[in-house]
């Protein structure tokens, strides 16, 4: 799936909840409709960030596995 992200956060090397907290900060800063992706080398973050996105009511565009990290792509919806 090819979605152009407006902002990329490279949180590789950080552990739960680091990548999530960085994503949340970016979501707060960006406007509604913007697409933000966070890169995480931490598998638990790749699984847990979508849970947060669902609970917070944003749109999960997808979780994409790269060689040794995950790209979690989210659209801010409110």
């Amino acid at each position: 799936m090819d979605v152009e992200s407006d902002r990329v956060i490279d949180a590789r090397g950080s552990y739960c909840p680091g990548p999530l907290m960085e994503l949340i900060k970016a979501i707060k800063e960006e406007d509604v409709g913007r697409v933000i992706e966070v890169w995480s080398s931490d598998e638990s973050s790749a699984k847990d960030i979508p849970e947060w996105v669902k609970k917070a009511g944003h749109e999960l565009i997808g979780v994409f596995k790269e060689s040794d990290y995950w790209r979690i792509v989210v659209r801010k919806t409110k």
């Binding site: 950080s14 552990y15 909840p17 680091g18 907290m21 960085e22 949340i24 900060k25 707060k28």
Partner: peptide
């Protein structure tokens, strides 16, 4: 030993956004 950010950093981030 891992040098990873610990609870102080997490709590500070939370105060910014939560």
């Amino acid at each position: 030993e891992s040098g990873a950010p610990l609870f102080i950093d997490t709590l500070r981030q939370a105060k910014e956004v939560g």
